[in-house]
């Protein structure tokens, strides 16, 4: 870097790189906005075409209904569902993690538990929802059990994967330095497996919540699923769509923002990892 001209041109290069980076970020926001405008636009046009609130209410009509819902007992209903789902996932992790450990450590138990775990993944949600209703009736525990049962195989399988993949070299290093078994477990095994527990929850998140909501349709006296069924029975199309969109919006926000943020914070050390 000898001359002023060179310094200026390097400065310009750097500015260009920043500008294109900001530009691509702006372009991404634009794309998202475009997507939503397209969605709303097509919906509005269709609803105008059909011109029937019972067929397809227009966006403003649905927004009006959402406002009514918010002025009503939205948060009670909402929290009822959220608590059930959270409890369910908690149970799934509580049971699935030790199960996964056993599956990962022992070839026999890995194979033994593989069959039921795999079958559980293929069972239609209707089965879970109705069975939960038969067993629990109208109760808090029905959706909890269902969410737990659906998420648990994902957690177990991922934990088994994580346990099998614990870096042997770090264990050797710990032995060479005379670390005890409990130290190895706490400092090597657990941090290795933690991301897999999280992955199990993340991968089953959408499915578990959907089936949990279906369970509320059958066996709940409050909650999002219950509200959707109630309005379905009342043939209140705007309300059905309003609740559905609220549900979908919330799920997307949770997945896209909350889960990703939590993952990033928990696993800060991974962002610099070159390889797995």
């Amino acid at each position: 870097m000898t001359s002023v001209a060179e310094a200026v041109s390097e400065g310009q290069d750097q500015a260009n790189v920043l500008r294109t980076a900001a530009g691509s970020r702006r372009r991404r926001y634009l794309a998202v906005v475009l997507g939503w405008l397209f969605f709303l636009g097509v919906w509005w046009a269709l609803s105008a075409l059909l011109d029937s609130e019972a067929r397809l209410p227009s966006p403003p009509r649905v927004v009006e209904e959402m406002r009514t819902i918010f002025e009503g007992d939205f948060w009670t209903q909402f929290w009822a569902s959220v608590i059930r789902v959270l409890t369910g996932f908690f149970a799934a992790v509580l049971i699935g993690t030790p199960l996964g450990f056993v599956m990962g450590r022992s070839k026999y138990w890995g194979n033994f538990l593989q069959a039921p775990v795999v079958v559980a993944g293929s069972i239609p949600g209707l089965t879970y929802a109705v069975m939960a209703f038969v067993v629990f009736g109208i109760s808090f525990w029905g959706p909890v059990a269902v969410v737990g049962l659906i998420a648990m195989p994902y957690v177990a399988i991922n934990v088994a994967e994580g346990v099998r993949g614990v870096d042997r070299r770090l264990i050797d290093m710990s032995i060479a330095y005379g670390r005890s078994e409990s130290q190895v477990f706490r400092h090597v095994t657990v941090p290795s497996v933690l991301p897999f527990i999280f992955a199990g929850v993340r991968l089953s998140f959408s499915l578990a919540w959907k089936v949990g909501t279906l369970t509320e349709v059958f066996g709940a006296s409050k909650g999002i699923g219950f509200q959707i069924r109630r309005n379905y029975q009342l043939f209140n199309m705007p309300a059905v769509i309003a609740w559905v969109l609220l549900f979908v919006g919330f799920m997307l926000l949770l997945e896209r923002f909350v889960l990703v943020r939590i993952e990033r914070r928990l696993f800060r050390w991974r962002q610099w990892e070159q390889h797995q």
Partner: peptide, 25 residues
């Protein structure tokens, strides 16, 4: 992609029973 991706995502997140209700309605 910009236009359609988010719509597909919304449809992906909708539980199946909702479609059962809507089509019956």
């Amino acid at each position: 992609r910009s236009l359609l991706n988010d719509t597909v995502l919304v449809l992906l997140t909708m539980p199946a029973f909702v479609w059962a209700f809507l089509t019956t309605m």
